[in-house]
């Protein structure tokens, strides 16, 4: 203790202290900062298998080293979350040059998707695939999620996530079939026309609340058939298709047999 007390006047003391402070800050930051939690660190074998898959299936448009070509963007730095979302929902590989890539049955199984994601993530840092806990709807607050959803998402995806139209053939898809992980990844990476809602815009808790709200919409509708939850237009259509046509049918029945 004496040596320490004696050394505090040493001319190198500020340097040492500064180094220690920096180290401490760095360690605390690394421990506490919101970091894209990687489910598990990919092994070298996974990355290698991913690269093979990438070259066989994706390089035509994205380039041999994922650097991008005239037909597809660079994938360096998009992160594992983006790859996992696009491939797991079947949007990539894209089947035709359309206004936007449509969801379809996925072309790769979960293991292959993870390998592709690991490969792309190895090219540059980017948002990772969220953990189970981050997307668990049971841990979210559906009421708060509803508020955030209405403010940020409903203008394109409709109030309950039934989807909606955008310009020039693009559209915001319905969210009824998306898994919590896909929902989280979409918010994090902003696929296609969607804006990116990074962790500064919507905190991980907010994202989980939104997931809780959307999962709540999959409960049975209290009022009966939901009629697509598309609002007054579909209701009007059904009013005529069912109500008016049945009533006119009865009117014909009542008015028949006479004259």
């Amino acid at each position: 203790m004496k040596a320490l007390a004696a050394g505090r006047r040493h001319r190198l003391a500020p340097v040492v202290l500064m180094t220690l402070a920096l180290l401490f800050t760095g360690v605390v930051y690394a421990a506490l900062a919101p970091s894209p939690a990687q489910a598990e660190t990919p092994s070298a074998g996974e990355v290698e298998a991913g690269e093979k898959l990438f070259i066989a299936n994706c390089s035509t448009c994205h380039g041999m080293n994922a650097q991008g070509t005239d037909h597809g963007p660079s994938l360096i730095g998009v992160g594992a979350a983006s790859v996992h979302f696009q491939v797991a929902t079947g949007r990539m590989p894209m089947d035709a040059n359309q206004p936007q890539a449509e969801a379809k049955p996925p072309q790769f199984d979960e293991a292959e998707t993870q390998q592709l994601a690991a490969y792309v993530a190895s090219l540059g840092a980017g948002p990772g695939i969220p953990s189970e806990e981050q997307v668990d709807p049971a841990l979210g607050d559906a009421a708060n999620g509803g508020l955030i959803f209405r403010t940020n998402c409903a203008m394109c995806h409709n109030a309950v996530g039934a989807g909606g139209a955008l310009t020039n053939g693009k559209h915001a898809p319905p969210l009824y079939d998306s898994t919590p992980t896909e929902l989280y990844e979409a918010m994090l990476t902003g696929p296609q026309s969607m804006p990116v809602f990074n962790d500064a815009t919507l905190t991980p808790d907010d994202k989980r609340d939104i997931i809780a709200y959307l999962m709540e919409q999959r409960e049975p509708s209290p009022g009966g058939f939901s009629l697509g939850a598309l609002g007054p237009v579909s209701e009007g259509l059904w009013a005529f298709a069912i109500g008016m046509s049945v009533l006119i049918g009865f009117a014909v029945w009542i008015g028949a047999r006479s004259s």
């Binding site: 203008m155 995806h157 409709n158 909606g164 609002g231 007054p232 209701e235 009007g236």
Partner: peptide, 15 residues
Amino acid sequence: PSVVSAGAQPDWYML
């Protein structure tokens, strides 16, 4: 007033 959702339409007779 800040919120509008996709598919915001009136009932059919005002459509």
